[in-house]
Design a binder for these strands. Structure first.
Length: 198
DNA sequence: AGTGCGATTGACT
DNA sequence: GTCAATCGCACTA
């Protein structure tokens, strides 16, 4: 498993969201490495009223405006941190939300961080994913294509068919087919009907 | 300074 | 399946 180079990333948000299915997310910390296969993403595209960049750049969302391949981490509902990958050119606000992982390395570390045992519950859901991976607000703005501790990796094995559905948990632009997931994966979040072929 | 609400989760029926 | 918790942020005044 090698680091993804920035120029390997597709240059638009929807293509990147689909491309990231089957790739890996890795976090190296003093407690060890945690990694997982990305099995579910959502695209928040240019001009998307459901996206955090819609009303322009602010202190909170500035990482969305970094060159593609940077982390945008934010706090939601007073409960959870969510991790996105910025997806366009510098100055253009858009990103891909990472919603679920299939754990690969550091499973015991993930269990410790999450306080649950079942493999399929460790990183199923965007807030659970960040807990399992030890990702927080201090990771906002990091370059995921650099040589840092948090990085995107090549696929660990061949990727299954990619399904498409509407996005979860939003009201604006709710009809758009911008959620991507590995079909048949037990590690994907969301209601069952959204995980069936369209 | 006050207000409304959200890219969720975990507990509970 | 339903629902409350919880708080930072953006917006209005």
């Amino acid at each position: 498993m090698r680091r993804l180079r920035r120029n390997a990333l597709p240059a638009n948000t929807v293509d990147l969201a689909r491309y990231l299915i089957g790739k890996t997310l890795v976090h190296d910390t003093p407690k060890g490495r945690a990694s997982g296969r990305i099995v579910e993403t959502e695209a928040y595209v240019i001009g998307d009223a459901a996206g955090h960049a819609f009303r322009g750049q602010t202190r909170r969302n500035r990482s969305l405006f970094l060159r593609r391949g940077h982390a945008y981490v934010y706090f939601i509902y007073g409960v959870s941190y969510l991790l996105n990958v910025s997806s366009e050119q510098v100055g253009v606000g858009a990103g891909v939300l990472l919603r679920a992982l299939e754990p690969l390395e550091g499973v015991d570390l993930m269990r410790e961080r999450r306080g649950v045992e079942r493999l399929q519950d460790l990183a199923r859901g965007p807030g659970r994913l960040t807990v399992a991976m030890g990702v927080g607000i201090h990771d906002d703005g990091l370059d995921l294509c650099g040589d840092g501790a948090l990085w995107l990796g090549t696929e660990a094995r061949s990727t299954g068919e990619v399904g498409v559905s509407i996005r979860i948990g939003i009201t604006r632009e709710a009809h758009r087919p911008l959620r991507f997931f590995e079909r048949g994966s037990r590690f994907v979040s969301g209601p069952g009907r959204l995980n069936q072929p369209i």
